[in-house]
């Protein structure tokens, strides 16, 4: 799949290279990458792990070794559990619509109205926006008084809604913004999966006299099954890592009701100055991500056999 771009240039050749040709100073090609890799990825992983065992603070002075006490504190911290709960709610509330809606969009664009580029652009453009543009646009949409949504609501005789400062509503608003912002990515993946379905499949269905609904359910949905599995997996992992739009829209409020795990890590580390404790929560979260990824791979492998 990753080599789909290849055939236009050169036919794929799977022939093994003779050892003789491969000999040489190939290592030097890898060195620049390895240096950066070691400095900015491996080393932070190691030093973060060490930091999580200390009481390191942002203000610098005196990092003493404290063993596993940060981890013990994290597991007993109700704010950690609340942020985990919020993250789970966010993940479930975004993942399902982001998968279903992106498929619906791709299918509608695919079955073809004129001007495909226009529809494609409409759905994909938000994905290209930096997070702060997204939040600026939506803060303006949600604005009390003269924001677009509240203006329409009051025009229709309803009460205004505090989209970002009402407990219970704020998480819903963040979910909405996230769907708007990121659906374009899944949409493009689905669209190209649909376009790769061979024509003869449809012609066969046509001859069988299958109606549009039958065709959708019994041909198209199964044909993009692989894409669906990939999108679900990527989407869950991406949703778990939510931070930026929350930080910019509500900073985790009101009363911590939108505080995700990464938002809490940020609060602890950079507002609370407790880098050691923030690192410990980071590593617990990392472990959780790995577990989720492994479980997903297991389920996927079982489905394929």
């Amino acid at each position: 799949m990753l080599t789909d771009l290849a055939p236009s240039v050169a036919p794929p050749i799977t022939q093994k290279t003779p050892a003789k040709v491969r000999k040489g100073s190939g290592f030097w090609f890898v060195v620049p990458f390895l240096v950066a890799f070691a400095m900015f990825l491996l080393w932070p992983i190691v030093s973060g792990l060490w930091m999580s065992l200390t009481n390191q603070s942002l203000t610098g002075s005196g990092a003493g070794f404290t063993g596993l006490s940060n981890y013990a504190e994290a597991l007993a911290d109700p704010a950690v559990w609340q942020s985990l709960w919020n993250t789970a709610v966010f993940t479930i509330a975004t993942a399902a619509p982001l998968v279903v809606l992106s498929f619906v969009m791709a299918y509608l664009v695919y079955v073809g109205l004129p001007g495909q580029w226009l529809w494609r652009m409409s759905f994909f453009t938000p994905y290209l926006l930096p997070v702060s543009v997204v939040t600026a646009l939506w803060q303006w949409m949600f604005q009390p008084g003269f924001g677009l949504i509240n203006s329409i609501l009051t025009q229709l005789g309803f009460a205004e809604i505090g989209f970002l400062d009402q407990q219970g509503v704020a998480m819903f608003s963040i979910v909405l913004v996230t769907i708007w912002w990121t659906v374009g990515f899944n949409f493009l993946l689905y669209l190209s999966a649909l376009q790769n379905i061979p024509d003869h499949v449809f012609e066969a269905a046509q001859l069988d006299g299958a109606g549009p609904w039958r065709r959708l359910v019994s041909i198209i949905v199964p044909m993009v099954n692989k894409t669906t599995i990939m999108i679900v997996m990527l989407q869950i992992l991406a949703s778990l890592k939510v931070f930026e739009q929350i930080y910019l829209l509500t900073a985790g409020g009101p009363r911590g009701s939108t505080r995700s795990v990464l938002e809490y890590i940020y609060d602890v580390g950079f507002s609370g100055y407790r880098l050691g404790y923030a690192s410990a929560i980071s590593y617990l979260f990392f472990a959780l991500i790995v577990v989720v990824a492994v479980v997903q791979l297991r389920i996927m492998n079982r489905k394929e056999h």
């Binding site: 890799f37 900015f40 990825l41 491996l42 080393w43 932070p44 992983i45 030093s47 973060g48 930091m51 390191q56 890592k241 931070f243 990464l262 890590i265 940020y266 580390g269 950079f270 880098l275 923030a278 690192s279 980071s282 590593y283 979260f285 990392f286 991500i289 790995v290 990824a293």
Partner: peptide
């Protein structure tokens, strides 16, 4: 090792990376 590191979420490295 390079491939395995794709799994690491960059956000969790923010704290040690900042310190570095």
């Amino acid at each position: 090792l390079t491939i395995a590191s794709i799994m690491v979420p960059g956000q969790i490295l923010i704290v040690p990376l900042f310190q570095q």
